[in-house]
Amino acid sequence: MPTTADQTTLHVPQGPALGDAPSRPRPHTGRRARRGKRLLNRSTPYLFLLPALAFMGVGLLYPVCRSVWLSFQDWKLGMAPESAVFSGWENYLSLLRDPNVYTSTGVTLTFAFTVVVLEVLLGVALALLLERPIRGMSLFRTVFILPMMVAPVVVGLIWRFMYSEQFGILNKIAKAVGIGGVPWLSSQEMALTSVIIADVWQWTPFIFILAMAALQSLPASAIEAARVDGANTWQTIWHVKLPLMMPVIIIATLLRLIDAFKVLEVIYIMTDGGPGLSTEILSLHIYKTAFVSQQLGRASALSNLLLLIVLALSVALFVFSKARERQARKVAM
């Protein structure tokens, strides 16, 4: 049988059996071949990574580098690339002088932190409420998750219709209960709130799903122990469930924060940044600078600043999950 023969020949060079003559020095070529093989073994994972790295290089690294380069140029959209003039830090400095940039940053910060706080509070609360087995629970869960699956442009449209002052359902309800028409999107005071409501509607499910998963992976016996120890429902949530869910909640919060800083389509569709600048978040401001004012250099500079903010958040996320991993490893030991 060939297999047996193979096995015997394989076993021969592995060293002498007990009582055999002392091993002969191995031929030189064998060692070299082995070293080659070891090198190949060690580089295998990187070979597998190569396609993904190439893809990232083309799709991410190049645009980022290009945008950094662009941010130091004075270049208008529609003009020949050769016409770009190196302008040093001018793009960045002009941003600092522009009050609209400050307004826009303020709107972005208000938007991002408000939606994330609301989404985390609502998502976690919903997960805690719906944790218990109730009839038809799986249906509820699916319904709650739906908004997240709708394309952002569609979300923008849905809410624009609902907010519409003439035929929107919200104002119909408002009128029916006697409040009168609410200028959802047309007043400077209301617009940002309306946009925030739409985002909370769309992204609370994200927190909900993660919080739910965290809840279901909690050690059931620790929660039972809390019941035996005399904790009521609220105390169990506060002292046991929430602290144990915290790692997941923090990661979900950071992910949402990163996303909230980059939001564009929903607001673009709903208000296009208006009225005035009341909902002009940074990404929209960048979009307008690049494609309306056609100042590509300046838009690149601004998008690099936004990139820095998001990068800082991502680093925080990375550091946090690393720390968790270290802790988890300690547990395993």
Binding site: S221, A222, E224, A225, A226, V228
Partner: peptide
């Protein structure tokens, strides 16, 4: 009560 998997609060 003492639980099988100890059920300590991690």
């Amino acid at each position: 009560m003492v639980f099988q998997d100890y059920a300590l609060y991690p």
